[in-house]
């Protein structure tokens, strides 16, 4: 199955943050109030050097996957550039592997003057089954507190964790699966994602949440009540 992937770029426009160019009509994007392309919240220390981060969430009949970069060429501090991919919600939920979608995102800021829709093949299963570092602990934390956002410390390994979760969720649950960065517990209050990564430098802001580090190890115990659910989400036989 071939899935079309629309694109849009957001960055500095008229001294503010707005749409630069898109392969979709502007009116389509305007009709998606859920579209979030700027930094979340306003609790970002100005001297914090954060790495480009990925974000995924549902917006209407689309699933959005984006990558946000700090924009050093912008006229003001704190401005960002975001490359957005838009996939039909029903179609992406049939996709087992997000890696080909992530590969469509740029490694650095690129600002072409026009954009065309891309496509991704649903048959491209490029990654073999391996358990990503820290993934067992993520699954355990998620199942123990399904109403709370799982907090992943740092950026390293976050993409692999997202890919692993997506792969092991069944299509209907993928619709509501979401991930992004967070700079303070307050910015998780509105539309809390399933999992959020946080900059290591700000870890002290999370005092009440159980945090997951890439070095955390966890293997389900067959005698535990949650074993079957944990084994399912970890893709264990």
């Amino acid at each position: 199955m071939i899935i079309p992937v629309h694109q849009a770029l957001f960055g500095e426009v008229n001294r503010g943050h707005g749409l630069l160019v898109s392969s979709l009509p502007e009116t389509t994007l305007r009709s998606m109030p859920q579209l979030a392309t700027d930094l979340p919240g306003s609790s970002i220390p100005p001297d914090l050097e954060w790495e480009p981060y990925i974000r995924g969430y549902r917006a209407g009949n689309y699933y959005i996957i984006s990558k946000t970069f700090p924009d050093p060429d912008a006229s003001r501090h704190g401005m960002v550039f975001t490359h957005v991919l838009l996939l039909d919600l029903a179609e992406i939920c049939q996709l087992n592997d997000l890696a080909p979608v992530f590969h469509l995102l740029p490694k650095s800021i690129e600002k072409p003057s026009s954009l065309q829709a891309l496509q991704v093949s649903a048959t491209e299963l490029t990654t073999p089954h391996v358990i990503a570092p820290g993934y067992g602990k993520v699954v355990n934390t998620l199942l123990n507190n399904p109403q709370h956002t799982v907090i992943w410390v740092g950026n390293d390994g976050f993409v692999q964790i997202v890919e692993s979760l997506w792969k092991n969720l069944w299509p209907n649950t993928r619709r509501e699966f979401s991930f992004r960065i967070s700079f303070a517990p307050q910015d998780l209050q509105d539309s809390p994602p399933t999992i959020a990564c946080i900059p290591e430098a700000l870890v002290g802001r999370w005092t009440h949440e159980s945090l997951v580090h890439i070095t955390d190890e966890y293997m389900p115990n067959p005698s535990d009540e949650m074993y079957l659910a944990e084994a399912f989400l970890m893709g264990l036989p």
């Binding site: 503010g16 943050h17 306003s42 970002i44 003001r76 704190g78």
Partner: peptide, 9 residues
Amino acid sequence: PADHTPTTS
């Protein structure tokens, strides 16, 4: 100068 305040905040 102060930073740009994020769009949705």
